[in-house]
Simulated scan of single mutants.
Amino acid sequence: MKFDINFFKTLLPENLQNLEIEYFDEIDSTNSYLLYRKEFSDKILVIADYQTLGRGRFNRKWYSNPSENLMFSIGLKNINVSDLQKFSFITPLSVQEAMEENLNLNLNIKWPNDLIVDNKKVCGILIETQIQNSEKAKVIVGIGINVNQTHFQYEIKDRTTSLKLLLNQEINREILLSKILDLFFKYTNLISVDFETIYQKYKSKCFGIGQKVSVLFGDKIYIGILSDINRNGELELLTENTKLSFNSGEITIIKE
């Protein structure tokens, strides 16, 4: 069943009733649309029922069937450059809390931006920015959630799952998206006021802290204890010889 945009709009809280919204049955990429083709004044939500060129970090293809999942991007303008990194905290936290509060499903945040259950990916996030001037920037937050899809491509099926597979029931996409947006914009209003609370909540949901992990960074693999995710969003790895910091990469738990 196609995403019901009219029903979705009735679910938005009062403070989001004036949110600019665009819906597409099909588009190449909601993030690309906002980055390169769409001008907007302040904030906007773009939803697609299907993406032909959906992408994740490192330009990886995002696989998603039509009319089964959530694929959307939030565009914000005039964000303080000093606050840009904070979106890597509030975005996964908003999705995680919406699922926990409304579906009674406890997901973990896998640094930097994935949401997982039993080491299987449910949600991926891609955050892209464009500097407007020395102080302000445009932020595009792309989110893809496996909601009602039950069959996945061979190359990803062993490391991917969906809400329907986890809960054994169909999930209302319109309600879930409205809950995520409510939390996202509440946290957006807090990033310059009470970031410490956001940071501590994020860390409490993070996967792997205190465990032995491997970090794939570029073409090298580093092994050590994941000691922290710092306030700049960097992973801190304690090796036998030193402490390293990474601003991107892929982590894997090492079971001994």
Rank of each mutant, 00 (worst) to 15 (best):
E97I: 12
N6S: 10
L84S: 01
I156C: 00
N247D: 14
R173L: 11
N113H: 10
S88Y: 12
L190T: 12
G144T: 02
V141T: 15
N31P: 04
I5M: 01
L12D: 03
T252L: 07
I171L: 10
E101W: 08
V139C: 05
S214T: 14
A137G: 12
G210W: 06
F217W: 09
K205E: 06
E135K: 11
I198V: 13
G75W: 01
V147P: 03
K9A: 08
I145V: 09
G224F: 00
Q211D: 15
K110P: 11
Y187C: 04
D118N: 15
N18S: 14
F7T: 13
S178H: 02
E20Y: 10
F195R: 04
Y154F: 12
D25I: 11
N102Y: 12
E155M: 03
K136D: 15
D4W: 03
V147A: 04
S41A: 09
Q51I: 06
K38S: 04
L16N: 01
Y222G: 00
T91P: 03
N59C: 09
V117C: 13
Q17Y: 06
K136V: 08
L12A: 05
T30I: 05
T161Y: 10
F184A: 01
V193T: 13
I223M: 12
D28R: 10
W111G: 00
E26V: 09
N102W: 15
K157M: 10
R60K: 11
I156S: 00
D194H: 12
L16M: 03
K243V: 14
I198R: 03
K136Y: 11
E256D: 13
I209F: 00
A48C: 12
L216Y: 06
M71C: 07
N31K: 02
R37G: 05
E101P: 13
I225C: 04
R173G: 08
Q132S: 08
D219M: 09
S64Q: 01
F184T: 01
E101L: 14
I254Y: 08
I21K: 07
K203H: 06
S248E: 15
Y187Q: 02
N78A: 11
L12C: 07
F87G: 01
Q132P: 01
I254V: 14
N80P: 12
R159P: 05
L177K: 08
T239N: 11
D194F: 11
A137E: 07
F8M: 05
L107R: 06
G224T: 01
K61P: 05
G124W: 04
N133D: 15
V213N: 00
N241D: 14
I191T: 05
F207Q: 10
E39R: 10
E155G: 01
S32K: 12
S41Q: 12
E174F: 11
S64H: 02
K220C: 02
L12Y: 08
V95I: 15
N104S: 15
L216H: 04
N80L: 13
L103I: 07
L126A: 06
E68A: 08
N108E: 14
